[in-house]
């Protein structure tokens, strides 16, 4: 592998890693507050990719298209929480569906979403137009090395979105409410925080993060109705590297995951993309609380 090659792979890896991070943040925030996540997070991303493809294809200006996709996905996140997750609270953990019924209901919504997209846009793969440059293969030279401009700009946009999310989480009143509810919902209610609305807002935020990921990932991959599962799996893997609890761990883990995947793919084009996943599963055995997580004992 030449140095040029290596650096180009690095950039590709960072771009995908930034997307994984962004998607995983949605899982992180939902898990933080409700101990549940959307097992269709990747399918929300997929839906956002198709919506943005359609919006841009219909000639909407990029900012309008982005806002429109985010609004639609916000509604989907709200609906998911309201109709597929919250009603489960009626049943205690001891009931038949058990404490894990949310995994199956969110996965059920994911199936419906896949099928719906298939009905609207068909089963075949589609190519998303570039978002920021005029051609998909617009190369710029930095020194001796050529980079896809689109890739660089997507990295910047994804990292900016991660930054925006952190700002919201650590610098706003909403973020304080979220952490208070995460710490103890009953105590939060006593502080005058509307717990139910905070929980809903968290699921909306998770969907928005999926929306941004979906818009950004379009130009990097081919878009098809069943692409979601793999993003769900990888985002879960990245979030578990951070123990679902450490936002910085998720950023570092996400970027490393993307880079490892790009390099492994180069090394072994047949099974390379599976290596990082196998690595994460091995990590779960060795350090179940995540590389960047903290362990907690189960004592009642």
């Amino acid at each position: 592998m030449t140095l040029t090659n290596f650096i180009q792979l690095l950039v590709t890896g960072v771009a995908m890693g930034a997307i994984y991070t962004l998607t995983a943040k949605g899982l992180f925030i939902a898990h933080l507050t409700t101990n549940r996540v959307n097992f269709g997070q990747g399918d929300f991303l997929m839906a956002a990719s198709f919506l943005s493809l359609a919006a841009i294809g219909a000639g909407l200006p990029l900012p309008v298209a982005i806002v429109a996709v985010i609004i639609v996905l916000s509604l989907m996140g709200w609906g998911l929480e309201r109709f597929a997750v919250r009603p489960l609270d009626r049943f205690g953990a001891g009931r038949a569906g058990g404490a894990l019924a949310w995994i199956l209901t969110t996965a059920g919504v994911a199936l419906i979403l896949q099928n719906t997209v298939e009905l609207i846009w068909g089963k075949s793969s589609q190519y998303s137009p570039p978002l920021f440059s005029d051609r998909r293969d617009n190369v710029i030279m930095i020194g001796q090395i050529g980079f896809f401009l689109e890739e660089l700009l997507i990295i910047l946009a994804a990292l900016a979105a991660v930054g925006g999310f952190w700002w919201a989480l650590f610098r706003t009143r909403w973020g304080r409410d979220v952490y208070t509810v995460a710490f103890n919902p009953d105590a939060a209610a006593l502080f005058g925080i509307d717990v139910r609305r905070t929980v809903t807002s968290v699921w909306v935020m998770a969907a928005i993060l999926a929306a941004i990921s979906g818009i950004l990932v379009g130009p990097l991959v081919t878009v098809h109705p069943h692409m979601g599962l793999i993003f769900t799996i990888k985002a879960l893997a990245v979030a578990s590297l951070g123990g679902f609890a450490n936002p910085l761990g998720i950023l570092v883990g996400g970027i490393l995951f993307g880079v490892a995947e790009a390099l492994a793919n180069y090394w072994d084009s047949k099974y390379g993309d599976l290596y990082p996943l196998l690595f994460v599963m091995a990590m779960l055995v060795l350090k179940p609380s995540g590389i960047f997580g903290e362990s907690k004992a189960d004592v009642r």
């Binding site: 597929a84 049943f91 009931r95 569906g97 199956l104 059920g108 896949q114 099928n115």
Partner: peptide, 20 residues
């Protein structure tokens, strides 16, 4: 063509309405 919608719908309906 709507197989997944049916599967997903069943999963939701059973878990939300008749979890046992």
């Amino acid at each position: 063509t709507i197989g997944l919608i049916i599967y997903g719908g069943i999963l939701l309906a059973v878990l939300l309405l008749v979890p046992e």
